[in-house]
Amino acid sequence: MEGILFKIFGAFITALLAFTVGMLFGGLRRKVIARAQNRVGPPVYQNFLDLLKLQSKTTNIAHGFMGHMAPVWIIIAAMTTLMFIPVLQGDLWFENLTMKGDLIFLLYMMVFGNLGMALGAGQSGNPNSVLGVSRGLSQLVGFEIPYFLAITALMLQFQTTTIAEFLNIQAETGVWIVLQNPFAFIAAVLASLGMFMYAPFNIVGAPAELASGPRAEFGGKYLGTMMTGGAVFAFIKLVLMVDLFLGGAGNNNLEGIAGTAVGLLELLLKTFLFYMIPVFVAIVSPRYRTEQAIRFFWKWPTFFGILAIVWALYKNGTFN
C-alpha cells in the first residue's frame, strides 16, 4: 500500500520536474542561440511567461472534435511516455513504472503524440497544416530507421528490452554504453537531431514556408498545451538518451534526500550537455528540404546504425 502511494506521489513530482526542466531548457536554448548571435536574448524564464500568456488568451473558434483533442492527445502521450521512463536509477520517487520490454513500448508511444497532432491538424482544414503533417511523417520515416537500428543494436548486444536493465548493466560494469557500442551512439545522436526538429530539420514547422505547419490554426490555450507537451517530450527524449547511453543518473552511494538531489543534479548536467548537441547544430544550420533531410538520415546515420548492429553481434559472440 505504501509503495503505491509513493509511486503516485512520485508520478506527480516527475511530471512537475519534466515540465519545469523542459520549459527551462527551451528558454536556455533561446538564450544560447541569442548569445551565439551576439544578442542579449530573452530571459531564461521566457517560456513560462509565454505559456502563461497563451493560457490567458480567449478562444472564439472551433475546428471540430479532433481540433479540441489534439493538444490533449499530445499531453496524454507525453505523460504516459514519461511514466515509463526511469528518471533516476533505483530512486523511490523517480524510478516510476518499469516493466519488461518497456523500451519497445516507449518507441511506439513516442509516435502517439505526433499522430494526435496529425489528426488535429487535418481537421483544421488549413492547407499549410496538411503539408506540414505530410512533411512530418516523411521526416519520421527518415530518422526512425537509424534510431531503431541503434536501439536494436543495444537490444542485441545486451539481450534485454528493459531500460532499467541497461542502467544496471552500466552500473555493474562501470562502463557507459557509449563506450561499449560507440556506433549506436553516433547513429542515435544523428537521429536525435531530427527528433528535436530544430534546424536544419525544422521542415515541419517552418514558419516562413508553412506558417508554422501543423500548428497554423492553433492559438491561445491550444498552443500553450502543445508547448507544454513539447517541453515534456523534449525532457523524455533527453532522459531516454542519457539512460541508454550515458549511464543514467542517481547511481550513487548517498542515502535518502541527498542521493536524490545529487542524482538530479547529475541528470540535469547530462541532459543539458546532450541537449546542446542539437541546439549547436541548429545555430549554424539553415533549413533542409524534405528530400534532403530524408537523404541525410538514410545515408550516414543508417550506415552507423548497421555498423552498430554488426558491432553488437561481434561483441555478442554470434560470429564466433
Binding site: 488568451k57 473558434i61 508554422s212 490554426e217 492553433f218 492559438g219 498552443l223
Partner: peptide
C-alpha cells in the same frame, strides 16, 4: 508569429 491565430 507565423499565423494570425497565434499572434497578439
Amino acid at each position: 508569429a507565423a499565423t494570425p491565430r497565434q499572434a497578439d
